[in-house]
Design a protein around this nucleic acid. Sequence first.
DNA 1: GGCTATTTGTTCAGCCATTGAATTATTTGC
DNA 2: GCAAATAATTCAATGGCTGAACAAATAGCC
Lengths: 412, 412
Amino acid sequence: MSLTHAPAGAVRQGSLRELNLALVLGRIAAAHRPPSRADLATATGLTRATVSAVVEDLLAGRLVSESDPAPRSGAGRPARGLVLADQGPAGLGLEVNVDYLTVCVVDLTGQVRHRTVHRADLRPVAPADALAKLVEMAGAARDDAAGQGLTLVGAALAVPGLVDDTGVVRLAPNLGWRDVPVPALLAEHPPLIEQVPGIPALVVDNEANFAALGELHSRPPGPSSFLHISGEVGIGAGIVLDGALFRGVRGWSGEIGHLPVHPEGRPCRCGGQGCLEQYAGQEAIVAAAGLAQAELPADTATARLAELAEAGDADALRALHDAGTALGVAVASVVNLLDLDTVVLGGGYAALAPWLCPPLLAEIAGRVLTAAWSPVTVRPSTLGAEAAAVGAAGSVARRIVAQPAGWLARSA
Amino acid sequence: MSLTHAPAGAVRQGSLRELNLALVLGRIAAAHRPPSRADLATATGLTRATVSAVVEDLLAGRLVSESDPAPRSGAGRPARGLVLADQGPAGLGLEVNVDYLTVCVVDLTGQVRHRTVHRADLRPVAPADALAKLVEMAGAARDDAAGQGLTLVGAALAVPGLVDDTGVVRLAPNLGWRDVPVPALLAEHPPLIEQVPGIPALVVDNEANFAALGELHSRPPGPSSFLHISGEVGIGAGIVLDGALFRGVRGWSGEIGHLPVHPEGRPCRCGGQGCLEQYAGQEAIVAAAGLAQAELPADTATARLAELAEAGDADALRALHDAGTALGVAVASVVNLLDLDTVVLGGGYAALAPWLCPPLLAEIAGRVLTAAWSPVTVRPSTLGAEAAAVGAAGSVARRIVAQPAGWLARSA
DNA sequence: GGCTATTTGTTCAGCCATTGAATTATTTGC
DNA sequence: GCAAATAATTCAATGGCTGAACAAATAGCC
C-alpha cells in the first residue's frame, strides 16, 4: 500500500535521465543473471531505444561492462549480457571497535577487494590516535584499490555507539568515547577519496546499522525487511524496512539492548532497570555460565561459550537458554510492533545461534499475536565478524548504484 | 540521510508532468498561507513558466482555486494566492467499531464536510448486515457531498482488528469478526464512488492505523514521525515514519497491546503472558479502579474514570498511575527501538492523558537511553472519538493530492 | 498626478530525452 | 542456403522544461 514516493525536489528535464540511469543500473544490480538490453526494456517498461541510450552512458562511465559469456536463449541474434563493472568506483569501509580496527574496500558488485584488520585494545588509545592509525591503513587500502582499477568515492565509518547527524560520536560507552568530532579529526589528514557530486565524502554511523546494511546487500538477496541484532558487549539492532535502513528521528534507533525485559529487574548502567543487556549481553552470559570474569578478551568469550555448549556443559547451556529467552521477550516486542518476519542474529550471537534459537523461537511463538499466520524466521548472519566494515563500504558502493548521475558527470 | 527514492517504475516523458503536478500540489497543500506561483517556483526549484503551466492544469481540473484575499507583500504586481479547492474530489471514510458505525466525507483541504454516527452494539450483528447499514449511511453521505460540489473518489474502512492485504478482516476479536471478506461483501452493493485511475476504490485497514494518519494530517501540522496509541478495549498503535504510515511486512504492525511488560505476569487471551493490555487496557483499568465490571458501555467507561480521577478518587488515581507506568514501559521499548520523539495518546487515552502522562514520562526518562539528549513529547490527540473514520477519509483525499494525474486525466 | 522601481505572471523559441517505427545485425532451425 | 526469430541501433516526431523577453499591476517618491 506504499505510495510511490516522488523525488523530493523539482523534476527537471535532466532529472529524467538521472532517474532512468538509476532505474536501469538498479535492475542490472538486482538481476540474478546478466540481463540484455531487451530484458531491461521489458523489465523497466522503457523503450529498447531508451535503454540502449542509457546503457551507452553507463558503459562510457565504466559503471557496467558487457559480460563475456553471452547468455544463450534460443534462436535470434545473441544478447549481450550486462554486469556491474568490477573496475571503477568503490567504497571505503572503516571500523573502530573495542579490540580491533578494520579497513576494507568494496566494489559495485559488492565484492570485498581489500581488507585489513589491526587487533589492539583501543580503550586506552586517544580517539585522534585511533583515527590516525585508521587513516594510515586506509591509505594502504587506497593504493591497493587503485592498483586493481578502483577509485574510492566515499568513506563510511562504523563505531560502537551513538552518532549524531553531523558525524560526532556522542557516546561510545565500551570504547570510552564521548563527543568525539570524527569528521573534524579526519579532515586534518589528506583526503583519500575522490569527491563525487551527490556522494558524501564521509558517513559515520552505528556499527549495528552498518552490519544490518551488510546483511541486506549480501548474496543471495534475502528479505527487504528484517531486524539484525548485533550481540557484542552491548546489544544493538539495525532495522531494515523495505530495503532501507530505518535510522529514527535522530539516527538513534535500534537500542534493543535497553528494552526492559524485566521492568523491576537488575539495574542497568543506562539508569534503567531490567534491560535486555543485563540478561543477554555478553558479560551477563559469561557470568551466568560461571566463567570467571577473568580478563577474557571480548572476541574469545563467545568462542569459549560455544565450545562449552558444544561439550554439553550444563552451566553454559543454561546461561544460553536464559539469554535466548530474554532475547525472545525483546524480539517478541519488536515483531508485535513492526510485523517483521525475519530476525538475523549477528555479531557474537551468530556463533551462539544453535543454542539461542530454540528458546527465542518459543518466546516468539507464545507472545507474538500474529505468529499463527506469519511464522517468524530466525537465522544467524552470513557475514563474519567484521560485518559492519563491509556493510559500511557496501553502503557507499550502493549509493553509487542508486545515484549514478554524479559519478557519470565527473568522468565525462 | 534518507536516499531520495526514485519512482518505482520507468520514468517516461509524461511522468515528468505527473511528478511536477504532485510536487506543486503538495506544496500548496503544505503551505501555511496561500502561495503565489512565484512562491511555488522558488520553493520547488522549477521555472515560473513551468509552474504557471502546471497550475493551469490544476485550476482546470478544479483541484486548486485562487484565493480571494490576495496576499499583500509590498511593491509590485499583486500575487494571486493558490489554495486547495473545497469543491471537487473528496474521500469517503467508514468505520465499524464495537458500539457504533460512522461515515464521513473529507475534502482536499482536510475539512470534514459530512459526518454521521449510528450508535448500536455491533457484536450481535452479522458482518454483512453491519456493512449494509454502513452502505446505506454512505449513500446519504454521497448525496450530501454531491450537493456541496464534492465527488467521492475512494473509500477507506477502519475496523478494530487485523486486516490482510486483500482487505479481508482476519480477526477482530472485540467485534467477533473472523475472516470477513469485506471487499466482496461491499461489491454486492451499487458503487458509491467514481473510480479514478491510481486511486483504489476501497482500502480496509486497522483503526489504529487510520487514526494515526488522521493525526498526521491534522492542523496545525505536527511532526512527521510519531507513535499514535489508541487505547480502547484493545490497545493498538499506528506508527508514522517520515510522514508515511509503517504497516509492516503484512500490514500487522502496531500491536503494542501485546508487548510483554511483565514477562511472567498475568496470562493474556492472546496466549502470551504479561501483555500491556492486561495492565493498561480499558478493562484492566476499570477493574483496578474498583468499578464493578458492570455492563458499563465501552464509551462511557473512560468518561467515568476521568470523572472519578477529577474528583480525587484514590482507587481511580492509583489505577491510572499503574496503567501509565505499564504504558511507559512499553513506550520506552518503542522509543529505544525507533528513536521517535513524539507519542500521541488517542482513543480513550486522550481524555485520561492528564493522569497517564506523569508516570509515563517518568518511565521514559528512566529507561530511554537517549532521553538526556532528545526529550520525548507525550500529548493527547487533537481529534475526537471518531478519529479513525476521519483519518480514513483523509487518507483518500491525501492520495489525490499525492497523485493528482489520475483525477486530471478523468476530468479532461 | 506621473514616473520609476519592483514583483508577478505569460509568451515563445530552443532544447533535451523519450517514443515508435523502420532498419540493421546475428543466430537457430529446416 | 533461406526463413524465422531475437537483439540492438537509427531517426524523425513529440512532449515538457528552460530562459529570456515581455506584459501587467502595484507602491513609493517627487
